[in-house]
Design a protein around this nucleic acid. Structure first.
Length: 653
DNA sequence: ACAGTAGTAAACATGC
DNA sequence: GGCATGTTTACTACTG
């Protein structure tokens, strides 16, 4: 996964041109991550491969799995003991991460769990889950192995740092995803299955594929399987463990799922505001451990027609017995371990950022939602909802910043992830400070950036020079290599029909033809694909924030929020949003006529004349401002401009 | 393999 | 002539 990402990075290394070119090339870490998803998921086949052997009886199969899992566990522990955990990490600087594995081992062994005990206590799937996690940690660590440096000598050192930094972030991401998943499974985070399974499974997973975990537990179901006596040896001090393991998430509320399954709605209120309010419609008829008609107890997935049946099932199959408590304990250990790991990684990341001069000292450099800075850059002064609502778990990373965008070099083309990720406006709003100060290339296309720049102005028009200034003002990255990106800006302005040059009194200004801009978006991406891409494009930070917000808002506001459909509400929420980063977000099933008549903000702004191609303007740029003061009512059919943009009137008073 | 999109570089034109 | 601004072409890379 990470390795793939790295190779991707290397592969796409610059063909190089003048110093500038040196920056291009290390791009698209995001896509690499996506690639890694599949690879990451494939791991489970190792243990479940026996399933394919149809000649086994269930009993044999179970036994086989058990043996296999145990074997793997032993092997793994041996590896741990022999320091095999960091084969490629002779480097001393890896010591930090080398520590991690033992720590993770603590989850099993130091907690007095010998392999034998593990086997006794845990069902094979549980073992596998643990192993999987261990392997994930190992992989993460392995990912930290030095990668081939970027080919460019001048940036070599920095490139390495950036790579490492990116990896660090990805690690965090993975950890958090695992953590979230575990919490979810534990009932701490009571996501609706539809929300959890859908989006999560498409997340770029490096080490552990979340959707695999349930499957790992699955099959274990066999409630009749006796809990081993050894469990008792553990003392099963659930309360004690719970206190530590769940310290991060509303400890008192964890207990219901752990001890009392009888609560029809023992739903923890852990994850804050937006989620609770909107996504959790699982009113009376829901249970954290019940979803999609099946029991969500780890490894169970017994089908239950209704909640009543589920409760019954819960009480019978998952009563407070040794086995259940052991499972809980394991789960808690997993969570605890992840928390420890997360803390360490956070610390390390902070140190790295400090080293890279990314405003490390500030406690929450990038996580500040839409605050002052956002107001600066977004004259609309509106809150950009999705990502700002929830505080990210980790404050260290720009919430909406994908791994790809963390390359301080590399083409801005973020392609899929760019396009389906958070809207440029919201991401910009959220990460304004980050981009402003960190020499990180914004993960947006030039076109989307230019558009953003233009749309941010009250007049919806900018001179070329003003566009330049916006770039430099908003992005530290664009304070260098000016020749290159300015050329690119000019190139884009000329190239894209969506940018209309307008002769102003003072000279030429550029405006955005929103219609054209929307037009150029490929119409293909719809439905699940879009969702998938959007999700996969989300960094964890974005996920974390957007996840709690966007997801909680019943999946994707982009897709189903009436606010988007309704320009009024949309305007209040998504001032410039959905422009997406560069494009094809066709957030709505653009049925064309669904959207109310909209003005085309950019065009009517002023009594200016379009100098060029009058004939074509009639056709393509129908609302072109060229002919006198544009009349909003004559702007022609709204067509597919169903997205974003506040009501023009709001800004053009 | 292909088409579409995007980034980069560069040549060239125009106006100040 | 130098510079800023635009336009256009060519090439490369990435993605679906």
């Amino acid at each position: 996964m990470m390795v793939e990402s790295a190779s991707e990075t290397i592969r796409s290394a610059p063909s190089g041109q003048n110093g500038v070119g040196s920056l291009s090339g290390q791009a698209d870490g995001g896509s690499g991550g996506a690639t890694g998803t599949a690879a990451g998921c494939s791991g489970r086949d190792v243990a479940t491969g026996a399933d394919s052997n149809g000649e086994m009886s269930p009993a044999e199969l179970l036994h086989f799995q058990q043996q296999q899992a145990l074997q793997v566990a032993r092997q793994f522990l041996l590896q741990q003991a022999s320091g095999l955990s960091s084969p490629g990490n002779n480097d001393s600087k890896q010591s930090a991460s080398a520590v991690q594995v033992p720590v993770s081992v603590a989850m099993m062994s130091p907690q007095m769990l010998t392999p034998q005990q593990m086997q006794q206590i845990l069902s094979p799937p549980q073992l596998q889950a643990l192993l999987q996690q261990q392997q994930a940690l190992m992989l993460q660590q392995a990912d930290g192995t030095p990668l081939c440096p970027p080919p460019r000598a001048p940036h070599q050192a920095l490139g390495n740092k950036q790579l490492a930094f990116q990896q660090q972030l990805l690690q965090m991401q993975q950890l958090q995803q695992q953590h979230l998943l575990n919490l979810q499974r534990q009932g701490l985070v009571s996501l609706q299955p539809s929300q959890a399974s859908g989006p999560l499974q498409t997340l770029p997973q490096a080490a552990v594929c979340p959707t695999d975990l349930p499957q790992l537990w699955k099959g274990e179901g066999t409630p009749g399987q006796p809990a081993e006596d050894s469990v008792k040896q553990e003392g099963l001090d659930l309360t004690g463990t719970a206190a530590t393991a769940t310290s991060f998430a509303a400890p008192p509320k964890v207990s219901p799922p752990l001890s009392h399954h009888t609560l029809p709605n023992g739903q923890p209120t852990v994850l804050t505001s937006r989620r609770d309010s909107s996504s959790h419609e699982e009113t009376p008829g829901s249970h954290p451990l019940y979803g999609h008609g099946e029991c969500k107890w780890p490894g169970c997935e017994t089908l239950c027609e209704d909640l009543g049946q589920f409760i019954k099932h819960l009480n019978t199959e998952h009563a407070l017995d040794d086995r259940s408590t052991a499972q809980c304990r394991v789960q808690m250990q997993v969570v605890q371990q992840l928390e420890i790991q997360l803390a360490k990684e956070s610390e390390r990341l902070q140190a790295m950022m400090a080293h890279l001069h990314m405003r490390p000292s500030e406690p929450k450099p990038f996580s500040q939602p839409v605050t002052v800075s956002a107001a600066d850059s977004f004259p609309d002064g509106l809150v950009h909802p999705p990502t700002s609502a929830a505080a990210p778990v980790t404050p260290l990373r720009p919430p909406g910043l994908s791994s790809a965008s963390l390359h301080s070099g590399g083409p801005a083309r973020r392609r899929s992830s760019d396009k389906f990720c958070s809207p440029i406006s919201s991401e910009l709003a959220q990460n304004h400070e980050f981009y402003k100060n960190a020499d990180v290339r914004p993960p947006f296309t030039y076109a989307s950036l230019i558009r953003q720049a233009i749309l941010e102005t009250p007049d919806r028009q900018l001179t070329l020079n003003e566009i330049y200034n916006w770039f430099t003002r908003m992005f530290a990255y664009f304070r260098r290599n000016t020749a290159t990106w300015k050329n690119a800006v000019r190139h884009n302005l000329s190239l894209h029909k969506c940018f209309v040059r307008v002769e102003n009194v003072k000279g030429a200004v550029w405006t955005v033809d929103e219609r054209e801009y929307q037009k150029r978006r490929p119409p293909k991406m719809t439905g699940p694909t879009l969702v998938k891409n959007m999700i996969s494009g989300l960094s964890y930070g974005a996920l974390n924030a957007s996840y709690q917000a966007a997801l909680a808002e019943s999946s994707f506001p982009l897709l189903n929020s009436p606010g988007v459909l309704n320009p009024g509400s949309a305007s209040s929420l998504l001032p410039l949003s959905h422009d997406d980063a560069g494009a094809p977000v066709e957030p709505l099933p653009s049925n064309g006529s669904s959207s109310p008549p909209r003005l085309s903000p950019p065009q009517y702004s002023h009594q200016v004349q379009v100098k060029e191609e009058p004939a074509e303007a009639e056709e393509d740029r129908q609302p072109a401002p060229s002919l006198g003061p544009p009349n909003p009512s004559t702007m022609g059919p709204p067509e597919d401009r169903d997205l974003e943009e506040e009501l023009p009137g709001e800004e053009l008073s």
